[in-house]
Design a protein around this nucleic acid. Structure first.
Lengths: 213, 213
DNA sequence: TGTACATCAGTGAACGCGCGTTCACTGATGTAC
DNA sequence: TGTACATCAGTGAACGCGCGTTCACTGATGTAC
């Protein structure tokens, strides 16, 4: 197939296994075994296990920051900057995540789990990696979100932002496990999209949006 | 000193190192090195690394569930059950966490980090461990919290509960890292207690409490 | 009171295993003259 | 058109290392008769 079929096979298996077990808990032998690829291929193509982990993230975050940028452009064409509501911005972000994961051919849950694992392990590393590589889009989004919440002091906004990230990343990164408990206890099933729709108004209220109850 | 000085030294070092680096990333050699104790002592006293991890959690969760139980008794003596507000219940929970960590002589941040790491890695394992060992207190608290939020459907309550746990566990488990970014960007400092006081009304709103903005 | 035995906390050294990484090598494809 | 060389993806086997766990052993304290 494509000249770098091997690279893609490794990235796919690594995404799947890292999301399922964690980074330290997944060995290169398990990854290359699942990808049906030689063990040495990881170090040949990526250089090290650490570099493979970064490549797994870049595969998602590159397209996402590009797509979020043009989505924000579109929104700003049809709305004045201070007309953009909190919930519209959050919806926009989640749509981008859903679209890009589908384009790449990975489950959005797996991406959220990777995010959750990375954040839990090393808050600072992760933030540096994102700010260094995708800082422009990241800050642009945060500024728009801040503007959608008038009358909030910078420090209040700062903390509520982390409350929000916690609620979203934590819930969606464990989505599969939480969903199966829901199934067992309430005999009810929900998709990630349905949960995101429950979540957006809830974290809107969390951020300070009066909103609906 | 006490006959089981060694056990306590191991538990303390393990708490500290697991919280700092993660479970897989911390070796028994590092733990016994810091505790100034023989390598074989971990397997002698606890049986395995896995059992040590469980013991580290039980050291916190045992006293916490006992103390939360009596604290809820006290609240129910002075208030009718349906007079207990969401925010009072949340304050009660956080007070218990702060008190018990102080009694044990561990930093509350370290306990929150352990919780965060455990939840991120294995949502289901962790929930089973808690429900199996401390299920009565756990469900009692959730029922009271549910009652403090009238008019919420079970499924809505269910999901908002996870949003809440995410906001709280994620933020407090990375408290040190988030605080240092605050320091750098806004030249302002905050204690965990101050952040908890910001957080309680915010997650009260998240849960559906109309509350103040 | 004295002796034999049991219990228990702790130790030092070794065990086998799986890990990430390295290295010499292969074979196919492309490029220069 | 033919030949020599370079590049590149990939491979098989081995490297040394750190890991959790085990085991035979020690030495102090407690118990039975």
């Amino acid at each position: 197939m494509a000249p770098n079929d091997t690279v893609e096979k490794i990235l796919h298996a690594a995404t799947l296994l890292f999301a399922e077990r964690g980074f330290s808990e997944t060995s290169l032998r398990t990854i290359t075994g699942m990808a049906e690829v030689n063990l040495a291929a990881v170090n040949y193509h990526f250089g090290s296990k650490k570099a493979l982990i970064q490549a797994v993230f870049s595969r998602f975050l590159g397209p996402m920051s590009a797509k979020l940028d043009t989505a924000l452009d579109d929104l700003l064409e049809s709305h004045a900057e201070n007309e953009l509501s909190t919930n519209v911005l959050l919806s926009c972000l989640f749509s981008v995540i859903m679209e890009v994961t589908e384009e790449i051919g990975e489950d959005p849950q797996r991406f959220m789990r990777l995010l959750g694992l990375a954040y839990a392990q090393t808050q600072e590393h992760m933030r540096h990696f994102i700010v260094d590589n995708y800082g422009d889009t990241y800050h642009r989004f945060l500024d728009l979100l801040d503007n959608s919440l008038p009358g909030l002091s910078p420090v209040e906004f700062y903390w509520r932002l982390y409350f929000m990230m916690g609620a979203a990343v934590f819930t969606l990164s464990s989505f599969e496990a939480i969903r199966s408990i829901l199934n067992a206890d309430y005999q009810q099933d929900m998709t990630m999209n349905e949960v995101v729709e429950l979540m957006i108004p809830a974290i809107g209220r969390l951020l300070g949006n009066p909103g609906e109850t």
